[in-house]
Write a protein that binds this DNA or RNA. Structure first.
Length: 339
DNA sequence: AAAACGTGGGC
DNA sequence: TGCCCAAGTTT
């Protein structure tokens, strides 16, 4: 059984020394509270996303839209393009909904309680707890994948994920206190990210190894146990890259729901369980240039890439493919090997 | 409540 | 190559 007070002291002391400097943070013990807008934006970007991947997006978003008011005024298309490549595009759609809700219903000020935050689109239990703790220093049980892993190791929890989630959340809740809730949440997550890593944890540098049952047993990376995920099926389709001869590409706006919803995209066939010959959406001298592979969350995709020169009023003509999701960027690059 | 929803990096 | 993993939410 962990002695909570000494455990908390060890981890908070470690955080005071080792906290990562990140652009959405203020240093521990500085007496400064971070901007709730930046905390919220970073938390949404970091959902299922690594810090290195999210970082340039955070910097660009806060440069272009430094406050929630400025984000509210942005065009949907601008924001979706700026999010391109980050994935989980419902996050970008909900980002705008939340910004507009904060402006319209909360006078431009973020709710400062977990319950209030939880009502915002795209803000679930984790993000509400994280923003309440980090931005407003409210005691909240902030449980993400890092915290689940840390707690699973501390207690050598034998229940596999995802079934173990309630148990792990309860165990994490036993460590929360009224003292420095924001630093506590970030200390636990930093520990998970830098020391108590999924593979090859650095237990020799861990400030709480003395409390850790998995460390005592000698096989910390056995935890957390997980159920094996189902294999991803493969789907096949065709994409068409139409060029106008002046460097522009024919794009279309995808429907607002579902996969890549609301994003710009290339015209594509349906994606089916087996390769089939697909009818081009536009008459042109199409030639095959190869295939691209892409992995989505729940399936692999093999796309046959066709290209031609031509024009069509039904398409959106853009010189810049930077606003496209990665899967389409791959197809565009294949037709443009010189860049 | 299981399934949908992206991407890139590591091994 | 393929599987796992990363600061989850929505339906």
């Amino acid at each position: 059984m962990i002695k909570v007070a000494p455990f908390r002291r060890r981890l908070l002391d470690w955080y005071d020394r080792e906290a990562r400097a990140l652009p959405w943070r203020t240093p521990p013990r500085s007496g400064m509270r971070p901007d709730p807008y930046r905390v919220w934006l970073s938390e949404v970007m970091l959902q299922q996303t690594t810090v290195p991947h999210a970082m340039p997006y955070f910097l660009e978003f806060t440069r272009r839209w430094p406050t929630v008011e400025t984000l509210t005024a942005a065009e949907d298309a601008e924001v979706m393009s700026a999010w391109a490549g980050l994935g989980y595009y419902a996050r970008a759609r909900n980002l705008l909904k939340t910004a507009r809700a904060v402006a319209a219903d909360h006078g431009g000020v973020f709710p400062d309680t977990e319950d209030g935050l939880l009502r915002l689109p795209g803000v679930g239990p984790y993000t509400a707890a994280a923003v309440a703790a980090i931005a407003f220093d409210r005691p909240a049980n902030v449980v993400d994948g890092n915290v689940e892993r840390v707690v699973a190791r501390l207690h050598a929890v034998e229940t596999p994920l995802p079934g173990a989630k309630p148990e792990l959340k309860h165990l994490a809740g036993g460590l929360v206190a009224a003292d420095r809730p924001g630093d506590w949440a970030q200390a636990l997550m930093d520990l998970g990210a830098t020391i108590c890593r999924p593979r090859a944890p650095l237990c020799d540098r861990c400030p709480v190894a003395v409390d850790c049952e998995a460390f005592r047993q000698g096989e910390p990376d056995r935890y957390p146990l997980r159920l094996r995920k189902a294999a991803r099926p493969r789907r096949y389709g065709t994409v068409w890259v139409l060029r106008d001869g002046q460097g522009r590409i024919g794009l279309m706006r995808r429907p607002p729901q579902g996969l890549l919803g609301g994003m710009l995209g290339l015209p594509t066939s349906e994606w089916l369980d087996a390769p089939v010959e697909a009818e081009p959406p536009i008459a042109a001298a199409w030639r095959a240039v190869g295939e691209v592979e892409h992995v989505f969350t729940h399936f692999h995709l093999t796309l046959r890439v066709m290209t031609a020169e031509g024009l069509a009023d039904s398409l959106i003509w853009d010189e810049d493919a930077a606003g496209l999701p990665s899967v389409f960027l791959k197809a565009v690059r294949l037709t443009r090997p010189e860049r």
